[in-house]
Simulated scan of single mutants.
Amino acid sequence: MKTNVYVLYGGKSAEHEVSLKSASAIINALDREKFNVYPIYITKEGVWCSLGLLEKEIKNVEELQVESSQKVAHSIGRFLIETLKVGEKNIIFPALHGTHGEDGTVQGLLELIDVPYVGNGVLSSAAGIDKVIMKNIFEKHKLPQTKYLPIKLHRWKEDEEKTIKEIEEKLRYPYYVKPANLGSSVGINRVENREELNKAIEEAFLYDTKIIIEEEMIAREMQISVIGNDYPKASLPGEFIMERPFFDYNAKYIDGKIIPVVPARLKPEVTEQVRALAVKAFKALDCRGLARVDIFVTDEDELFINEVNTMPGFTALSMTPVLWKATDGTTYSELIEKLIELAFERYEQKKSLLWTRCTK
Rank of each mutant, 00 (worst) to 15 (best):
Y347G: 03
A343Y: 00
S24G: 04
T359P: 05
A251T: 15
N90C: 00
R244Q: 14
I129M: 15
D114P: 03
S68I: 11
A278D: 06
I212N: 04
Y347M: 02
L143D: 12
L30S: 03
I26S: 13
L153H: 14
P245I: 09
D301W: 03
Y253C: 03
Y173R: 02
I92R: 00
Q65C: 14
E160H: 08
V262S: 04
P245V: 05
L285P: 02
E202Q: 10
R172I: 15
I227L: 02
E67H: 12
E139F: 09
K199R: 12
N28R: 11
K152D: 12
I258V: 15
N4C: 06
K210C: 01
E348Y: 13
G10N: 08
L8Q: 03
L110R: 09
G256C: 05
E239D: 11
I129T: 00
E341P: 01
E102T: 10
A180R: 04
I26T: 06
I26C: 14
L96R: 00
T320H: 14
I113M: 13
S13W: 07
E102S: 00
G52S: 08
P263C: 03
K157H: 15
I340L: 01
L285I: 08
H16F: 07
T356N: 08
E243K: 14
I224Q: 01
I254W: 06
A264M: 06
F246W: 12
L285N: 07
A200T: 05
K338W: 01
Y253M: 06
V279A: 13
P116E: 13
R265G: 04
C358V: 09
S333W: 06
K21I: 13
C49T: 08
T99L: 07
Q223L: 09
A281E: 05
L353G: 04
S69N: 15
G108K: 02
K85L: 10
N189F: 11
G228M: 03
D230K: 08
G11F: 13
Q65S: 00
T298I: 06
K71M: 09
K56H: 12
G10K: 05
L8A: 12
T298S: 15
V86R: 15
P179K: 10
L353Q: 10
K257N: 13
V86L: 12
I164C: 10
I76K: 02
A291E: 12
E82S: 00
S50W: 00
G46Y: 04
P260M: 01
M242W: 02
V279Q: 06
V115E: 04
W48Y: 14
L153Y: 15
E102V: 06
I26H: 03
Y173P: 08
L8M: 13
G121I: 07
E82H: 07
K162S: 15
L335E: 02
S235C: 12
K135P: 02
I58Y: 08
K360A: 12
K71A: 10
A276Y: 05
S13L: 08
K360F: 12
F296S: 10
S24M: 14
A264R: 02
K252L: 07
E168G: 08
Q349W: 06
L290E: 01
K157A: 14
F35W: 07
E216A: 10
G104N: 14
P150G: 13
A95G: 07
